[in-house]
């Protein structure tokens, strides 16, 4: 059942207002509730390398080589007391509190220097790209999703997946991936594997469109797996066999419909949601289950059938006949035609 005003979104991918505020605040922290910082994945990895110098690639830089050499002092005159383990090159943390403080400050300085070296491509580099997705369900309800992605371009299926809408797709190897069910509408996986939900020529299925110009929704017959989405593009998914039935949209307008103030968030370098979803078409109502007593009764019937099969099977094997007659020459079940 569609519910008004951005219903399914909050349960699915849309953040709470608090999360929205946190996300826009640019705390630089990944969020699993739908919003991510205004940093790319690559940038986040850079942070991790910097902040965990004892792991990965950054260790030789921060582990005791750069800092002493940066001071220009010979190794024997280091202010810090490093202890090299014979079997491990990892330096131990100084025991003296003053040395600890110096070590900490040195590392922080090294971090700052490293970030500065990253330059415009580093943390403070250009923000992520954005694209929009419009989903039109079986009842005509529209769902808008505004997606931020750090890559130069991503696949259409990947973009759809990042909306967080409930998606069931099936892969066809080199032929790509087909959408079976989206936001509660679609067909079961078995049928999707057979005919991609197209039981009849006029039967609807999840058709993939791209907006070439506002209101000009062009179907992409090669499918979403082969399509690449770049910054500013809008994809459309419609449960239809013919026309798209999607409205003309611009990306800022779509962002507003999805609940994001793009103009306010993006240029400021603040956090932009990786997926903001809002719509009236999300229907993820779970199918009605049966009463617990029905399951007990079903189990009892299964036990009865299994017991009957066991008893009758044994009786048949040990009973009056041990083999089945398959020849008709002497079958008692035949009778002369005259008697019939």
């Amino acid at each position: 059942m569609p519910t008004p005003g951005g219903i399914g979104g909050p349960e699915l991918t849309s953040p709470s207002p608090d999360a929205l505020e946190r996300g826009r605040g640019g705390e630089g922290r990944s969020s699993t509730s739908g919003f991510a910082p205004h940093t790319s994945r690559r940038q986040a990895n850079s942070w991790r390398e910097v902040q965990r110098p004892d792991r990965g690639l950054s260790f030789p830089t921060f582990g005791g080589g750069v800092i002493p050499r940066a001071t220009g002092s010979p190794q024997s005159h280091l202010p810090l007391r490093w202890r090299q383990d014979r079997n491990c090159t990892r330096p131990s943390w100084p025991t003296d509190p003053a040395d600890r403080l110096v070590a900490l400050l040195s590392r922080l300085l090294a971090v700052v220097a490293w970030l500065a070296l990253l330059g415009p491509d580093g943390v403070a580099a250009a923000g992520p790209n954005h694209a929009g997705v419009v989903v039109r369900d079986a009842e005509g309800g529209l769902t808008y999703a505004y997606i931020a992605f750090p890559e130069e371009e991503i696949g259409g299926i990947e973009l759809l997946r990042r909306t967080g809408l409930p998606l069931v797709s099936v892969g066809f190897g080199g032929l790509g991936e087909a959408v079976c069910s989206l936001a509660g509408d679609g067909c079961p996986l078995a049928e999707c594997r057979r005919n991609v939900c197209q039981g009849a020529p006029t039967a609807p299925y999840w058709r993939y469109f791209r907006q070439a110009a506002p209101g000009d929704w062009q179907p992409l017959p090669l499918g979403a797996s082969g399509a690449r989405v770049r910054d500013g593009e809008i994809d459309g998914w419609s449960w239809t066999a013919a026309e798209a039935g999607l409205p003309p949209l611009s990306l800022p307008e779509l962002a507003r419909l999805a609940g994001v103030d793009e103009a306010a968030a993006a240029p400021a370098g603040g956090a932009v949601p990786t997926a903001a979803v809002r719509g009236v078409g999300i229907d993820v109502a779970t199918p009605e289950g049966s009463e617990p007593i029905a399951y007990v009764a079903a189990a009892a019937i299964l036990v009865a059938i299994g017991g009957g099969a066991l008893v009758l099977g044994r009786r048949g094997r040990d009973g009056p006949g041990s083999a089945t007659q398959t020849t008709s020459a002497s079958a008692p079940s035949w009778r002369p035609e005259a008697e019939a």
Binding site: L312, G313, A323
Partner: peptide, 16 residues
């Protein structure tokens, strides 16, 4: 349920 029932019939009519 179907498999159990068919299994019972097969067991009764099979040629051991």
């Amino acid at each position: 349920a179907t498999t159990l029932a068919v299994l019972g019939v097969w067991a009764a009519w099979r040629d051991a």
